[in-house]
Amino acid sequence: MLAWTYAKITKRPNLMVFRIFVHLAAVLPLAHLLWDTWRGNLTVNPLQDWTFRTGDWALRLLVASLACTPLASVFGFKQAITVRRALGLYGFGYALLHFFIFVGVDYRFAFDLIWDDLATKRYILVGLAALLILIPLAITSTRGWMKRLGRRWKTLHKLTYLAVPLAVIHYIWLVKADLRDPLLYASIVTLLLILRLPVLRTQISQFRQRLSGKFLH
């Protein structure tokens, strides 16, 4: 695996730079959060900061992962495919952290209180649903599972199209007043899903090819 990656990278240094950039971009928010915590830069409600910031980045990275396929198939940015899995896994990682901060740090595993919230707050229910859906996807994200599942792997991983919208609904439902951010996510995700429609995909990529054709001649 390592050897394979290494071979691929040495052949294409630009791809390596791109991938390193993506990995750094995905890890930096966590480093930043830890730095702010250590330096006391958080608000007087630091647990809420942890919850919000890990949640924000989980969603951002999941959306970024969802953007890879259309970037490659519609817009011809083929390198995007090489970071799709990593972005999805990072997104899942932040989501898991977000979940454990809520259950373990914020509520200190006080399951009576957590149960209360789960039963009365629809945003918690959809958030949990999104996380649960992501678990089998994270587990089967390895090459081995890909081979083992064959064609079913692709079908299974279409669950992302359910998990990410659920995460966006989770955000919409928890916001008190200013819906601009969650609705921005909602429109981006909608766009990313629409771009997967076969009709649209072929239309746009044909249009793009014709356009680049014009410039070539």
Partner: peptide, 19 residues
């Protein structure tokens, strides 16, 4: 009496960690 967004059965006192 529950609220759709926030738990009303517990709270965080600013300056404290435990609810």
């Amino acid at each position: 009496v529950s609220h759709p967004r926030w738990s009303q059965s517990s709270e965080r006192r600013i300056g404290e960690v435990i609810r």
